[in-house]
């Protein structure tokens, strides 16, 4: 087990969805409750796979963690008005797509402070808006879109089923054409050898 004092010096390798690896300090990683629960006590051999998130997102999340390592202990969500210049820059630099990815990654890694800042930021985006304006911000699929999405999903499922059936058929054929003769050959050879051995031993 790594001691808290020394863990800040320890570097961990993180693997992203692209298969790339980069290192993050133990102190930064310790802000993730997911990491704490999974690796802190047992340590990690080789890179830690966070392969549901891309490298850019993970780097952004850990950039935040690295920055907040030296901050005082977290005591509940901080109001957006109280955010430091660095924090504001951190959020303003991100485009919407990256922001969404960061929220999801932060939620998965269970980084309480980052998640609550992001969520408060979303709440702010919706502040002062009426229902129609809110709908524009949060993109609700319309009934037609939902129907279309369902149809696409059904089509995909049907296609996947077909592919699976085809794959199963091909596997069966392969079994009969290639694998069985080999097996039979092995069995036949084994039988022959056994018979030969038996006849030899009788002699």
């Amino acid at each position: 087990m790594t001691s808290p004092a020394s863990s800040s010096e320890v570097k961990y390798l993180i693997e992203s969805s692209e298969g790339n690896t980069f290192d993050v300090s133990g102190a930064a990683l310790r802000q993730s409750n997911t990491f704490n629960a999974m690796f802190l006590n047992i340590g990690a051999d080789g890179p830690i796979p966070f392969t549901d998130y891309n490298e850019a997102t993970l780097k952004k999340v850990f950039e935040y963690c690295e920055h907040s390592v030296n901050e005082e202990n977290y005591s509940g969500p901080k109001h957006q008005d109280d955010l430091s210049k660095w924090d504001l820059n951190f959020f303003n630099e991100m485009d919407q797509k990256m922001f969404i990815d960061v929220i999801n990654a932060s939620n998965f890694l269970d980084i309480e402070r980052l998640t609550s800042y992001c969520c408060e930021r979303i709440a702010r985006m919706l502040r002062g808006k009426n229902t129609q304006e809110m709908i524009k911000v949060i993109t609700l699929p319309t009934a037609e879109e939902l129907e279309a999405k369902q149809k696409v999903e059904e089509k995909k499922a049907a296609a996947a089923k077909k592919v699976a059936e085809k794959a199963a058929e091909t596997a069966e054929k392969t079994e009969t054409l290639e694998e069985l003769p080999v097996q039979q050959l092995v069995q036949t050879t084994r039988n022959k050898l056994t018979r030969k051995y038996l006849s030899f031993s009788n002699e």
Partner: peptide, 24 residues
């Protein structure tokens, strides 16, 4: 790019609501 609110996990949605006023 609009926010895919319904696609966010439950924990995130709850955290967003916590930051909101009752009327919101």
């Amino acid at each position: 790019m609009p926010l895919p609110f319904l696609l966010f996990p439950y924990v995130v949605q709850k955290e967003i609501f916590k930051s909101m006023e009752y009327c919101e």
